[in-house]
Computed example of a mutant assay.
Amino acid sequence: MNSTAQIVPNPHDVLAGAQFADRYVLVTEGLSLTAIGAAERALGQTPRWVGRLMALRNLAVRPFRLKTGLEPAVLPAGRIGIFPLISQFPGKVVLGLDDRHLDFRVLVEVRDLGMGRQEVAASTIVKTHNWLGRTYLAIVMPFHRIVVPAMLAQILAK
């Protein structure tokens, strides 16, 4: 099943002052996922090619003292993959981090459609702080549009 891009219902509910948000959705059958389970399947491991892109990204941003995801977990709730867990509610989990250049959130939502089907949505919400954040967002956006659907597709592959 293909994931599709959609509009995020209200990104400011997740990150006040956000200037960017996108949402990718797929429909599953017979998985009975919770939001945390969907997040673990999508974000817990990265495809090898995404890992290589992230390693390249980490090398490129190191001179700017940006977070690389390699730092130890700072939140008591833990992590899913490289993303710190911020909060979880029935049907929703919020991950993300705040940095000097931008703050971002990944919202994973699961909605029951009946007859064993579920809609799983992954939204990325970003608030930039300065020129570096805006530049960074512009540079990573073409990759983001490929990586997020690939990560979401992992839900169906496991």
Rank of each mutant, 00 (worst) to 15 (best):
V74N: 05
I82W: 08
G96H: 07
T68V: 11
G37H: 06
G81Q: 11
F20C: 06
L95A: 06
A122L: 15
V50T: 00
T68D: 11
R41A: 15
F83V: 00
A18K: 04
T124Q: 04
G30M: 10
D103C: 13
G30H: 10
G44P: 05
A73M: 03
H101F: 01
G116D: 05
Q45H: 14
T68W: 05
R100E: 06
A77N: 12
I82H: 12
R111K: 13
T28I: 02
V126G: 08
I82C: 09
F89R: 13
V126K: 09
H129P: 14
R57L: 10
T128W: 01
V50F: 10
K127T: 14
Y24W: 14
V27L: 04
L113Y: 04
Y24C: 06
I82Q: 13
Q45L: 11
L31V: 09
P47C: 13
G37N: 03
W49M: 07
D98Y: 07
G69Q: 07
Q88P: 10
V120P: 09
T34Q: 08
H101E: 11
E109F: 02
V126N: 06
M115V: 08
P84Y: 00
A39C: 00
R23Q: 14
A21K: 01
V50M: 04
P90I: 02
A77G: 10
G51P: 05
V110M: 07
D99A: 02
I82N: 13
D112Y: 01
V106S: 03
L26E: 05
S32H: 15
H101L: 01
S32I: 00
R105D: 07
E119L: 12
V126I: 15
I125H: 10
A21Q: 07
A35P: 03
V94D: 10
A121P: 06
F89N: 08
L59N: 00
G78H: 03
K92A: 11
S87L: 01
Q45I: 13
F89W: 08
T28Q: 11
L56T: 12
L53A: 15
E109N: 07
R117Y: 08
K67S: 02
R62K: 15
K67G: 07
M115R: 09
L31C: 11
G37A: 01
D112V: 03
H129I: 09
E29K: 14
T128H: 05
G114F: 00
D22E: 15
V94Y: 00
T124Y: 02
A18G: 12
L56K: 11
V106Y: 02
L97R: 09
F20Y: 15
A18V: 08
R62H: 12
D112R: 10
I86Y: 03
T124V: 14
G78I: 09
R100K: 14
